[in-house]
């Protein structure tokens, strides 16, 4: 289960919920136990959301120096039907 806030920038992982802090056990807003689970399977996104203004940017364009107070970063994700076990509409 990837974390929507674990973002790779400038050769390190930062916590998108608490930028520019580095993603670590002690920084994780969800606690050390969940942190261990969240970092096991990471997947990076080409695009990021600058929140709360809801602006989408390319991950390569991220400039941590320009982040305003209260801003946070979220990975862009895709939504789909079904998921791990696809919902079925099977004919008899």
């Amino acid at each position: 289960m990837p974390c929507i806030y674990r973002i790779r920038a400038d050769g390190r992982f930062l916590c998108g919920a608490r930028p520019p802090l580095t993603c670590s056990r002690s920084v994780c807003p969800f606690g050390p136990t969940l942190w261990e689970r969240l970092i096991k399977h990471d997947a990076q996104s080409q695009t990021l959301w600058m929140m709360p203004e809801m602006r989408i940017i390319k991950a390569s364009e991220l400039d941590l120096g320009k982040l305003e107070p209260g801003a946070y970063l979220v990975k862009s994700v895709s939504l789909s039907v079904g998921g791990r076990r696809r919902c079925r509409s099977g004919r008899r």
Binding site: A17, M54, S80, V81, C87
Partner: peptide, 18 residues
Amino acid sequence: ISMGSEIATDGGDPVSIY
């Protein structure tokens, strides 16, 4: 909405906010 992602969030992602 019978679509979604299976990545857990805290409701702070843009789709949840919208």
